[in-house]
Design a protein around this nucleic acid. Structure first.
Lengths: 351, 351
DNA sequence: GTGAAAGCGCTAACAA
DNA sequence: TTGTTAGCGCTTTCAC
């Protein structure tokens, strides 16, 4: 893993020259100063009506588009939002991205996307890069519930919104869902179906959603008066493979659970795979509830009961919080906690 | 749709000042010129060993990281790769992105992501923005098989790689799969299972993959000596909903097909939904083959026969082609066409 | 309300 | 091999 890559020269893109029009050419054409052009296009400062007209004409005629790198340097900030997520392959996160995108594109921002792959080292590097690109803000789903790098950025007044997962003891805008409650409700739903042997496949506890969903599970079990068995508490890493392995362990138990709650979408798929492999019937022999709805949940075998999260809405909210903070850095910190929804389908039925 | 948004002021990020170290401070600390710092960090030009040492020490001590916006302006190009895809929600494309990312991160590039949403107008704007950001190259899955904007960029020597879909009569690096052959093989597979009433749900013909897969379908039918019925040729837009509607139309036919080939993954999910809705049995009453494998294809009801595409590999290849071209703009144009693989699962069986 | 001019932080040509 | 210096294209004081 630690071997050096073949030591080839770093690729540094070639200067392709500037085939494009500059603000100077527009100024010349319109017979005004570059300052006026800038004022017209940025909408700041006073420009008379006729000046504005003349400028806009020249801009249109030359098909001028301001060089964003020059603007970025001068303004000391770019029109870029950095988005750091922990797994781009997970539809949950891509839905967040869509939500984010739908908001920021109205303001002419673009997304610089990084995939931390649940690796704090990568995450740190990516945050540094985003800072060096002078992004105007960052939306991140952090891979640990603690991050010195993030703390540093926030202390340097980088606008940051934490999404899906939270960071302990850090004053930062955040968007999340009621994980504890959601998991608790799911357990109570299972309990109401007379399930007593309920298992959990949850995420790692160093991720807030992992810890919270576990907590909700335990709370639900206590409320339902069901004793908790250690061997029914399995931990995965949010990836499909780990869900598969965890489910295998559960199925190998002398006394199998009759129901299982799975802590995210990909692990649920893995769990289903394991269950199908040994031909255990869902929901007759084992009931399954997963976190996150998916557009194909109804086409699964069988249609899956899920705790749906408002993913798109979460992205939208995070983007709004971020733009607000970019506009007004002194806003008080805001946490938006959204509700989940238990959608009961075939995979959970009376034991 | 065309209504004006509330006319609020554009959000322009505030100059957050520079809490960060500049090259000047490093130069001072190390007692050398800024040019030397630049040379050491970029690896270009000659620097003596001891100089390099001194510089690296100062860099480490001050925790200096070059401002990429300033570098971008001066170099007249950024270390950013623009990626324009047509649907970020589609796992096919996110897998491409992962592949791209895995290659370019080694060279310290980052991804500026845009989602064209199959809309040429959006695509055009996004390409303009990428140009204004002076990205060093673009990987795009174009939403039409023709694009003046792309033509313009290529003629201005912007490194471009077209992925998944192709552009007619444009000399540009490309990565794709053997769509015609793949669709043809799928049809022959169905024919070998004695299916004669085979339907197609394909994408729009203004997208190359839509056209090619349709062509492959027709070719397969001819080869198998099966007459082609117009009502068995349905067109969707690559989204789930359209697959659902197309399948509904097929199921409403007086003479239903006994097999259907679907032109991409999301439409396949829609088709499954429609089939389940009317309780038609797969594969007994209708066999289904979809394009693109998905990690959850085995958990679908029933496990899905698919034409698997090497998605990650496609992303990797595209990124390599792009970096090559960035390094060496005069390379001849290259087209890499990868093979698909028909994975037979339960959803296709003897009629 | 408009223009002149000074940089943003870095790189690269040119000099030494 | 190293330093000096002139910008990259834009925005933003500061004068007028």
């Amino acid at each position: 893993m630690n071997e050096k890559r073949k030591p080839r020269n770093p690729i540094i893109p070639k200067n392709r020259g500037s085939s494009s029009v500059t603000i100077k050419q527009v100024a010349e054409k319109a017979g005004v100063s570059t300052a006026t052009i800038s004022r017209v296009l940025s909408g700041r400062g006073y420009v008379s009506f006729e000046m504005r007209q003349r400028v806009l004409e020249a801009v249109a005629e030359l098909n001028y588009q301001p060089d964003r790198t020059a603007r970025n340097l001068r303004r000391r900030v770019s029109q870029i939002i950095g988005v750091v997520i922990s797994d781009i392959q997970n539809p949950f996160f891509t839905s967040l991205i869509r939500g984010i995108e739908s908001v920021i594109e109205e303001d002419n921002f673009v997304i610089l996307l990084s995939n931390s792959d649940e690796d704090p080292r990568r995450e740190k590097i990516q945050l540094n890069t985003l800072e060096a690109e002078r992004v105007s803000g960052i939306i991140i789903s952090p891979c640990r519930s603690n991050s010195d790098e993030l703390r540093k950025l926030v202390s340097e007044h980088m606008p940051v919104v934490v999404i899906d997962r939270t960071i302990a003891r850090l004053k930062v805008d955040a968007v999340a869902v009621h994980n504890v409650q959601a998991a608790c409700d799911a357990v109570l739903h299972l309990a109401s179906l007379r399930h007593r042997r309920i298992a959990l496949i949850c995420g790692p506890e160093w991720v807030s959603t992992g810890a919270e969903r576990r907590q909700g599970f335990l709370q639900g079990m206590r409320t339902a008066g069901i004793p908790i068995l250690n061997e029914y508490l399995q931990v995965g890493d949010f990836r499909q493979e780990s869900g598969y392995l965890a489910m295998k362990r559960l199925l190998d138990l002398p006394q199998r659970p009759t129901a299982v709650l799975v802590g995210n979408n990909l692990m649920t798929l893995g769990a289903l795979q394991a269950i199908h492999e040994v031909c255990v019937a869902i929901p007759d022999e084992i009931a399954v509830i997963g976190f996150d709805d998916m557009s194909w949940a109804t086409s699964l075998q069988p249609p899956l009961t899920v705790i749906a999260q408002p993913t798109f809405e979460m992205g939208v909210t995070a983007a709004r919080l971020l733009l607000d903070r970019i506009e007004n850095p002194d806003l008080p910190t805001r946490h938006v906690i959204l509700d989940t929804q238990l959608i009961v389908r075939t995979s959970s039925c009376p034991a």
